[in-house]
Design a protein around this nucleic acid. Sequence first.
DNA 1: TCCCCACATCGATACCCATCTATATGCCCC
DNA 2: GGGGCATATAGATGGGTATCGATGTGGGGA
Lengths: 115, 115
Amino acid sequence: MEALPLECDTPLVARAMGNAEAEALARTLKAVADANRVKILHRLISASPQGVCVCDLTEPLGIAQPSVSYHLRILRQAGLIDRRQDGSFAYFSVRDEALRRLATLLDPTTQEALA
Amino acid sequence: MEALPLECDTPLVARAMGNAEAEALARTLKAVADANRVKILHRLISASPQGVCVCDLTEPLGIAQPSVSYHLRILRQAGLIDRRQDGSFAYFSVRDEALRRLATLLDPTTQEALA
DNA sequence: TCCCCACATCGATACCCATCTATATGCCCC
DNA sequence: GGGGCATATAGATGGGTATCGATGTGGGGA
């Protein structure tokens, strides 16, 4: 029998996280992982539950209107915000339970992420 | 006095989130917003607090060793994991309080993110 | 009906990021 | 001190992403 090479004996108790699972979580996190989208979410949370229209985001963010629409689309596709049309205005509001779920998944004490 | 154009009257109660603040949060989130880094964190949490060495991450992740080192560096620079050298092996462990803090910042019910 | 306004989409561009191979570093054992 | 192993770093590369200006769309008021 050949000599065993020196091995690091980390406890391989837990099986690897599922690929789909990890990518789903990463996709949601990517949606939030942008300074402008963080600011948008902050503002939406502050204005909850009335919602905020695009025109009130463009100026404080300091970016062009198409960019704001772009970020709102990212957040919406991630299921983190809702859109409500009122006349020619579009009001966006945060989906509290989606953000809470994301927070729970990250918290290592509530080990839901290990499911 | 000229006629006021139709305006959306969203409650502009909260001032915009500070730029530095938003970018700091985004930077931390970017560190987690990757499927492989999510898997790494998952494994580190499972193996907490002993830690996991690089060699035990390469194979389950299905990526080359330098890529694993790269991801570990990202997580470490974000303050999310610790590194402990033991002989020629490097053991990485999760910084629970950092992850918890991140989770808290995301949770809209604990409005710390609005600070 | 016509125009204006709010918002979305398109196409282009410049930058960032994850990955690889190749190579350096540092440790341990012989 | 030399060889081999674990890990880190460097450099190159392909794909993704945020941004913009230009343009499309749809509603509302005059």
